[in-house]
């Protein structure tokens, strides 16, 4: 009897703990407008706002943490946080290691930016962030791939002449090109890559994935994802569902 009581007390406390469970979201914090640190050092951006709303609808308490892009998947599978929202495109390679929710950012194009329209994007040196779909794509072209750990460095490489062009998400480059005062411009055609951006979770965390998936679906249905997209990605081509 005593044991039974104890067991039920334990079960109760366990479910109570579950109700106020904290879901930790890992992001890079260096990829505006998707995610970045604002002036006060807080994580901000499209994914922050979308993620907070997603957590509110899924009734989860979410905590944001930053992690290097390079080790963002190993730290997820070893349990240091539970979700990745870091502008991570859904690809088959990544899907083998982790699971994704449905995309909250539609499949869009990646683009080349360079100092001049004559930049040789097919045979020259092209910079891209390591372990991204853009880096994988450059490797399949005739260009020499120059990889960097952070998005910022890929752009800096073009500015200081280490690379002829940078290849990255169009929406990451757009504000940079717009504010470069003519120093940088888009070159060549845009390249559609990946299956959009989704939230990554551990493969064993199917319950969490379904929960987040439902919240994203609800946000798509009532148009709030589109609102956020319009807020964070203004310009000639606003991504939308």
């Amino acid at each position: 009897m005593k044991r039974l009581l104890l067991a039920s007390a334990l079960a109760l406390s366990a479910s109570a703990a579950l109700a106020q469970d904290v879901v930790r979201i890992g992001t890079e914090g260096a990829y505006p407008p998707y995610n970045f640190l604002d002036d006060s050092g807080e994580i901000a951006g499209f994914e922050r706002e979308l993620g907070d709303e997603m957590c509110r609808r899924a009734q989860l308490t979410c905590e944001w943490v930053t992690n290097e892009w390079d080790s963002i998947i190993p730290n997820l599978v070893s349990g240091n946080y539970d979700v990745i929202m870091a502008g991570m495109s859904i690809t088959d390679e990544r899907d083998e290691v982790i699971d994704f929710t449905q995309n909250y950012y539609p499949p869009t194009a990646s683009a080349y930016a360079a100092p001049s329209a004559e930049a040789d994007i097919q045979g020259g040196v092209v910079s891209a962030q390591a372990a991204t779909i853009q880096a994988a794509h450059v490797a399949t072209t005739g260009a020499t791939l120059q990889e960097y750990a952070t998005p910022e460095e890929t752009v800096a490489a073009v500015r200081n002449g280490e690379a002829d062009a940078v290849f990255a998400d169009y929406d990451f480059l757009a504000p940079i090109v717009a504010n470069s005062g003519g120093e940088l411009q888009f070159v060549g055609d845009r390249v559609p890559l990946g299956g959009g951006i989704g939230a990554g979770v551990r493969e064993s965390d199917t319950a969490l994935r379904d929960q987040l998936d439902a919240a994203i679906q609800a946000m798509k249905d009532d148009g709030s994802v589109n609102e956020l997209l319009a807020k964070w990605f203004p310009g000639e081509t606003v991504p939308s569902f």
């Binding site: 505006p32 002036d39 951006g45 952070t150 800096a156 504000p175 504010n179």
Partner: peptide, 12 residues
Amino acid sequence: RDLGGSKTPQFT
């Protein structure tokens, strides 16, 4: 590294 990186007006 983060502070030194170039910052565009939309985000700061």
